[in-house]
Each structure stands twice: as structure tokens, then as C-alpha cells.
């Protein structure tokens, strides 16, 4: 769904997290079966924090690494764009 529809709208398929979509689906079934008692709110909050943390940490780390290494090696196999 997130591959095909945005591709026709934007020209790009959207890379989503299938694991988080799976978590969403499990929560949906949990709500349908047991109402709000079926959902562990602390776990949901933890997952949300992990998602923010992941993007921040990986972006910072590769920014720092590239800034440190690129002056030494120069870009490798870089195409002209």
C-alpha cells in the first residue's frame, strides 16, 4: 500500500517500517478483542521513543563520520549530479 499509492502520487514509493505497521495491526486487534485494556501503554510509548531515538542517533552518527572521514579520503566513486 505505501509502496504503490505514493509512487503514483509522488513518483516515490515510501519506505515504511513493516515492523511498526505490524505493531499497529497487533494493537488494533488488541483493541478489538479487549478494548483499551488490551493495549500496554508503556510499551507503545517505548516504541515511539525508540523511533525518534533511532533516526536522531543514526543521522548524527553518519553526519559526524562523514564530516571526519571525507576530508581524508575524499568522496569515493562519486557521480556528477
Amino acid at each position: 500500500m505505501f509502496t504503490t499509492i505514493p509512487y503514483f502520487l509522488l513518483g516515490y514509493g515510501i519506505p515504511i517500517s513493516t515492523s511498526l505497521a505490524g505493531v499497529g495491526a497487533v494493537i488494533g486487534v488488541g483493541l478489538a478483542m479487549y478494548r483499551s485494556a488490551g493495549v500496554n501503554k508503556r510499551t507503545v510509548l517505548k516504541l515511539f521513543m525508540a523511533w525518534i531515538g533511532t533516526v536522531t542517533v543514526t543521522a548524527l552518527a553518519s553526519y559526524i563520520l562523514y564530516t571526519l572521514i571525507a576530508p581524508i579520503t575524499g568522496p569515493i566513486l562519486k557521480p556528477k549530479v
Binding site: P15, I16, S17, T18, S19, L20, K46, L47, A50, W51, G53, T54, V55, T56, V57, T58, A59, A61, S62
Partner: peptide, 12 residues
Amino acid sequence: LEISVTHSIIGA
């Protein structure tokens, strides 16, 4: 910790 590979790669 439960994290997403997608988020890791796109962040990087």
C-alpha cells in the same frame, strides 16, 4: 530494544 531497520537506514 525494539527498533526499525527502515528508520535506522533512512536516519543514516
